[in-house]
Design a protein around this nucleic acid. Structure first.
Length: 777
DNA sequence: GCGTCCTACCTTTTT
DNA sequence: GGTAGGACGC
């Protein structure tokens, strides 16, 4: 027997199933991979196997993921396994890959290499201008809604003409008209939106046989991660690329499909088998991540979804600790309890902060945790959140850069043409835009034309612009500013260019005058500069394009988190949305905000399909946990300033009691026990009126009633408002002042003559609501 | 033409 | 609670 070959080494740590997935290299392969089943590991090993064993050159392998995070992780794993030459491996997000293709071959579909990628903001700006132009009332046809119709059309590969042919409602008609104008605007701006990246790549591959051949020949092996989240266009692009070689390996888990709102079509998973004949299917159902209890709980939740491809997830891991389900009074207490428990985890179980994640449905929920962490001095890592590149000042400077890189970028131009104010009023801008639109040229062309003549050029103006002398002067000055920027950009690194822009555009001066936030904003610009520095050194024009592309497509910049002053590389707790948490794992996971309306989200409760997606979202969250899982709900939550209370999430009831610990964190009752109690229900049309939520006889509190409170002693009811569990009672306590109390929670008791004193449950948590207004002078 | 105040809408999740 | 766009006054 010879010594172990590298291949044996590569395969030795894998299970039989995993090995099967790694070594089936010829022909289509579908891997159904449950959470924690070593999916990324298999993909990385597969790549290494292709390179090391099958002798495939790394650059002939394309691995496509959904998020940048996933791409980064997969790339790192591959590099570790493959070693040298792996940097030529193509690991990209779908959008990143398509952008790359279009930068080099986009001219077939009308794109110049420096095309700009429009974000939602730019799209809305374009849409608003079009509505304005067509004299359509934006209140009647919100830009967002129209853009959503356009996005649908693009994802179904329908052109404006095709859309207008199948209009059914007036709204569709309007949308079709706007779509056409929108396409024109983007075309003129040499810009694409996110859908276009995919659509135009598809069109390129579909309509140009030489292009198809080029890319089919370029990539012999294709791997697609998170296949359940791919949309129709992505599937088509993948299909075309792999049509010839048939060497396509897709990995997915239908139970983790959480992007239908972004046109994901989990049915791609089944369609795959009909598209690619002789597909081999490998199911990975052993979890190497979670404890048995966590898996069972997750399984019992997801089991409530209909029509699933059943998977029997199993593990050799230990049974583990029961899941803690607990409730807090409001989001502040929720945050406090979570942090308390996290501290305890560190002391008792040795689970460090790096191994703890708090996951929530919507970004806004992070706030309470940020506040609590800051107060407790606990470092945290906020994933996503307020995106750095979304800050106003950053976007403004980026718009200058965009305009320099792509002078046709009207959205960028309109953003900064009068920032800081330089005498270009809305009227002037409208005039310039109208001239540009009717001549089908970029706005900057018109500006430069005005400037040329105004600066003494003999040739008459190419465009007729109706502007006052003062406005002409301002337009000229702006044109001159941008022209100089463009000239100088040729010799400067992007970070140097940023300096130049900040100083010469007047932006820096504007910030220095802003006493309130100027300094902070300037710091953000310094940070922008720092992020541009990574691109410095390479050929100037290319680096600017590359930097801007990175900004547009890579939103989760590492080391550039928006979190206030979270120390770098310190042991920190992770705050993350459930969507972003997919693919990650932590020793301990806190799922918070498990209330009706939150998870499931209120926008999803009416639609069974969407409800199932919410359930999958929870499933994703639960299965991120290795050892410990906590699930929290708050009785009351502030929502856009106002607070309201909601029932516990229906999903909590789907977890069997046997998997949940009774011993919760701080003596709260288990939500599961409380649930059927109408005391916890919010009164609404669909729920029966709850019985009065008092500890005493059950009758209402009226002004003048004498009451007793466990902590505040005796008092007199001043007023009461609301009904049922929502009842708030204002009470004047002797010596304690006036308090407003939430009846359903406060241990408040009416003093009746014959009643004996001690009626309280000594274990009952007492919580008060104080309305600060009542203390105002 | 510019700044300020007011309002409406926002908030589902991301490339 | 924050922001973007519109109305209005200087």
């Amino acid at each position: 027997m010879s010594s172990i070959s590298p291949t044996e080494n590569l395969l030795s740590g894998l299970s039989d199933r995993q090995r099967e997935a790694v070594t089936h290299t010829d022909g289509p392969l579908l891997i159904v991979a449950g959470p924690g089943s070593g999916k990324t590991r298999v993909m990385a090993h597969r790549v290494a196997y292709l390179v090391g064993e099958k002798g495939i050159p790394p650059w002939k392998i394309l691995a496509v993921t959904f998020t940048n995070k996933a791409a980064r992780e997969l790339r790192e794993r591959c590099e570790r396994l493959v070693g040298g030459g792996s940097n030529e491996l193509q690991v990209r997000t779908f959008h990143g890959f398509c952008s790359r293709v279009l930068r080099s071959d986009g001219e077939h579909v009308g794109l110049k290499p420096e095309f700009t990628i429009y974000d939602a903001d730019d799209q809305a700006r374009v849409a608003r201008r079009i509505l304005d132009q067509f004299d359509i009332d934006p209140k009647q046809f919100p830009p967002r809604a129209l853009l959503s119709v356009i996005s649908d059309a693009k994802n179904n590969m329908r052109s404006p003409a095709q859309l207008s042919r199948r209009t059914e409602t007036y709204r569709d008609e309007v949308a079709a008209r706007v779509y056409e104008a929108y396409e024109g605007a983007l075309q003129r701006a040499n810009a694409v939106d996110f859908d276009d990246l995919l659509l135009k790549t598809f069109q390129l591959l579909e309509g140009y046989p030489e292009m198809l051949e080029k890319y089919q020949g370029r990539f012999e092996h294709l791997l697609v991660d998170e296949f359940q989240d791919t949309n129709a266009l992505q599937f088509q692009v993948a299909r075309l690329l792999a049509l010839k070689s048939q060497n396509i390996c897709v990995v997915g888990d239908p139970d983790q499909s959480i992007y239908s709102w972004r046109h994901a079509e989990p049915s791609n998973l089944t369609d795959f088998q009909s598209t690619f004949k002789n597909t081999k299917i490998v199911t990975l159902d052993q979890s190497y991540r979670s404890t048995q209890i966590i898996l069972e709980a997750a399984d019992s939740v997801i089991g409530n979804n209909d029509g699933r491809m059943e998977k029997n997830l199993w593990t050799e891991n230990s049974r583990g600790t029961r899941i803690t389900v607990a409730e807090a009074y409001n989001e502040e207490e929720e945050a406090r309890l979570v942090l308390e428990a996290a501290k305890e985890l560190k002391n008792k179980d040795g689970i460090t902060r790096n191994e703890v994640a708090i996951m929530y449905r919507v970004n806004a929920q992070s706030r309470a945790f940020e506040v609590a962490c800051n107060r407790e001095g606990i470092p945290y890592r906020l994933v996503g959140g307020v995106k750095f590149y979304d800050r106003k000042e950053v976007k403004d400077i980026l718009s200058f850069l965009r305009l320099i890189s792509n002078p046709a970028d009207d959205a960028a131009l309109e953003r900064i043409i009068n920032v800081p104010a330089r005498g270009l009023s809305a009227r002037t801008v409208t005039e310039l835009r109208e001239v540009a639109v009717s001549n089908k040229v970029p706005v900057l062309d018109v500006i430069l034309d005005v400037m040329r003549v105004n600066m003494g050029d003999e040739e008459p103006r190419a465009y007729h612009v109706d502007l006052a002398t003062r406005a002409l002067k301002s337009v000229t000055a702006f044109g001159d500013l941008i022209t100089r920027f463009i000239e100088q950009s040729l010799a400067l690194d992007t970070n140097e260019l940023i300096d130049l822009i900040v100083e010469r555009s007047g932006y820096g001066a504007m910030l220095r005058e802003d006493k309130e936030r100027g300094e902070e904003r300037m710091e953000n610009l310094q940070e922008l500069k720092a992020s541009a520095e990574q691109f410095a050194g390479s050929e100037e024009r290319g680096q600017l394009t590359e930097f801007l592309e990175n900004v547009a497509l890579v939103s989760d910049v590492d080391g550039l988190q928006g979190g206030d002053d979270s120390e770098v590389e310190e042991e920190a707790i992770t705050l993350i949305t459930l969507h972003q948490a997919k693919g990650l794992e932590y020793d301990a996971v806190f799922l918070v905000g498990l209330e009706e309306g939150m998870l499931p989200h209120s926008r999803s409760v009416d639609d069974p399909t969407q409800l199932e997606e919410e359930r999958r979202l929870l499933y994703v969250g639960m299965t991120r946990a290795r050892k410990r899982l906590y699930m929290f709900r708050a009785f009351q939550r502030r929502f856009r300033g106002q607070s309201g209370s909601q029932m516990a999430s229906r999903f909590l009831l789907e977890i069997p009691d046997t998997l949940v610990t009774n011993r919760d964190i701080r003596g709260h009752d288990r939500v599961a026990d409380r649930m059927p109690d109408p005391m916890w229900t919010k009164r609404s049309a669909s729920t029966p009126a709850p019985r009065p939520a008092t500890r005493s006889a059950g009758d209402a509190f009226d002004a003048g009633d004498k009451v007793r409170h466990k902590a505040f002693g005796e008092g007199v009811v001043v007023s009461s408002s609301g009904t049922g569990a929502d009842t708030q009672v204002t009470v004047a306590f002797s010596g304690q002042g006036v308090k407003r109390l939430m009846l359903s929670y406060a241990p408040l008791e009416k003093i009746v003559e014959e009643e004996s004193a001690q009626q309280f449950d000594p274990d009952e948590e007492q919580i008060e609501v104080q309305d600060p207004d009542l203390f105002a002078p």
